[in-house]
């Protein structure tokens, strides 16, 4: 899948603004961005569901939106909103969805045991959708996206709203798909998810890619390696002091984030000071994300 200089405007405002993105086959790509950054619009453009105002899009080698329907034959989509059919059982959902790809009933039924096993729903094959938990539904949505044996799987926030147990199960499933050589494109708010699963990450804001690379590259390129978080009532007073001891320092509410190449002078100073607590940790993707997109709420 590739997008080249793609722009989409709504009421004169560019939601996707000259965006360029290319996926390498067989890898997992993450699309990160704050709310309203243009993630879902990008996915809808790539699937040919909406027409761009400018730019070239290709999906599995086919020009989009012109040949989008044919290209979607080999793509699986896990949408953000639950779109399973509530009147159907787990099994019937898979059969009905397979029929939309023009697959024969026999062909689909032959695939169902493997799909159920993949989703961990073998025992619930006859259960109706409303009786499933949120995690089971999401796993069923994932299994449904695989019914046509796609080369590319697009997942829009696959683990939003799931508890940690359910999230880990979904991650396991995605890792198996990566091992099978599928190409994945996922959007997420969870930096941990992106860091664990993705080979490459693109950070999108205001409809543009503002940074791209592997998680480690992004951290190395954009952020100091050590982070010291300072909490407590004394944290704010200590800010001016901290600025002398680290490269960069940000205050968010009661917490002071100090970014530095060498944390020792900071931690030594903090050990001597009463009334503050601190946490020394390596920099992660969330630090990069916040640095690049800011700490302001997007609504």
């Amino acid at each position: 899948m590739s997008l080249h200089q793609v722009t989409k405007r709504y009421a004169g405002q560019a939601v996707v603004d000259g965006l360029t993105l290319a996926l390498e086959p067989g890898r997992c790509h993450g699309l990160l961005g704050p709310n309203g950054a243009g993630k879902t619009t990008t996915l809808r453009l790539a699937l040919g569901l909406i027409v761009p105002d400018a730019g070239d899009i290709r999906l599995l080698g086919r020009p989009v939106p012109r040949e989008a329907a044919a290209a979607r034959q080999r793509v699986g989509v896990v949408p953000q909103a639950d779109s399973l059919d509530p009147d159907f059982s787990v099994r019937e959902n898979l059969i009905a969805y397979g029929r939309y790809f023009g697959l024969g009933r026999r062909e689909i039924e032959a695939r169902i045991p493997a799909l159920l096993e993949f989703a961990g729903l073998t025992a619930r094959a006859q259960a109706r959708v409303p009786t499933l938990s949120g995690g089971m539904r999401r796993r069923l949505a994932l299994a449904r996206a695989l019914v046509n044996d796609p080369e590319l799987i697009i997942l829009d926030e696959p683990t939003t709203g799931l508890d940690p147990q359910a999230r880990h199960l979904v991650w396991q499933g995605l890792r198996r798909l990566i091992q099978q050589g599928k190409t994945l494109l996922l959007t997420t708010h969870f930096m941990e998810e992106a860091e664990r699963l993705c080979d490459t990450i693109s950070i999108i804001d205001h409809g543009r890619i503002i940074a791209a690379g592997s998680p480690r590259e992004l951290i190395r390129r954009h952020i100091e390696p050590h982070v010291v978080e300072v909490y407590g009532e004394g944290a704010a007073d200590w800010a001016s002091h901290a600025r002398r001891l680290c490269r960069r320092c940000e205050q968010a509410g009661e917490t002071l984030f100090c970014y530095t190449d060498d944390a020792r002078p900071l931690t030594d100073a903090l050990d001597r000071r009463a009334g503050v607590r601190y946490l020394h940790r390596p920099a992660n993707l969330e630090d990069v994300f916040l640095k690049l997109t800011g700490r302001d709420l997007r609504e």
């Binding site: 699937l47 569901l49 329907a69 044919a70 979607r72 034959q73 793509v75 989509v77 949408p79 909103a81 639950d82 779109s83 399973l84 059919d85 509530p86 969805y97 939309y100 790809f101 023009g102 046509n148």
Partner: peptide, 14 residues
């Protein structure tokens, strides 16, 4: 409500 149409639009159907 059920977003069934959206789900179908992600397949080769229009």
């Amino acid at each position: 409500v059920q977003k069934t149409w959206d789900a179908i639009l992600n397949t080769p159907l229009t």
